[in-house]
């Protein structure tokens, strides 16, 4: 029961933060709301037995990636003197309609996934957590069943580094 209350609390803060990202005028405020949202989502991860991912979410997402965004905002000097950038009028109405349709389509997909008692996956995850610990449970699967995708991920990151450097480099020639 306590976990359910906590889940709703984290979910509420995550949704509030997400709304803040969309509605805040200043990019810096948007970014800080994003950190709030990501942190709360990490809280929900803990409640859904994904402890390692919660830590990674805070360290990599809320830490590294958001700091990268903050660096760019500061570098481009966008923190103040912003221009009003929200689309209004007919476009906003169409956006509302699109988003409404999307929400309706997603809403029809809920339910029927949860029977009585704990789900099969939850039992398997609890067993893996008890046997290997939070990091070991992920690592065991990651380095056996998913080792090829894992290596390809390494190549992807290398390509991203080279690409980012090539794009952001000042053109000397």
């Amino acid at each position: 029961m306590f976990a359910t209350v906590l889940f709703y609390l984290f979910a509420g803060v995550a949704i509030g933060g997400a709304l803040g990202v969309v509605l805040a005028k200043s990019p810096v405020a948007s970014l800080l709301m994003m950190v709030v949202s990501l942190g709360s989502v990490a809280g929900t991860f803990v409640l859904m037995e994904a402890h390692f991912l919660a830590a990674v979410q805070v360290i990599v997402y809320a830490g590294a990636i958001m700091v990268l965004f903050m660096f760019v905002i500061m570098l481009l000097n966008l923190g103040h003197d912003y221009e009003q950038d929200v689309k209004m009028g007919a476009f906003a109405v169409v956006s509302f309609a699109v988003v409404g349709v999307m929400a309706g389509m997603l809403a029809t997909r809920f339910g029927g996934l949860e029977g009585d008692g704990p789900a099969a996956g939850a039992i398997a995850i609890d067993a893996a957590l008890a046997e290997h610990g939070a990091v070991g449970a992920i690592g065991q699967t990651l380095f056996t069943d998913y080792v090829v995708p894992f290596e390809i991920t390494g190549i992807l990151l290398l390509v991203a580094i080279v690409g980012a450097l090539a794009l952001a480099k000042r053109n000397v020639a």
Binding site: A14, I15, A18, L19, V21, V22, P27, S37, V41, L78, Y82, D85, V86, K87, F91, A92, S95, F96, V98, V99, M102, A103, L106, A107, F110
Partner: peptide, 16 residues
């Protein structure tokens, strides 16, 4: 779903 919809709305409505 709620977070995804909010994100979609943000992409559509903001120009920054």
């Amino acid at each position: 779903a709620i977070l995804f919809v909010i994100g979609t709305f943000g992409v559509l409505i903001r120009r920054n």
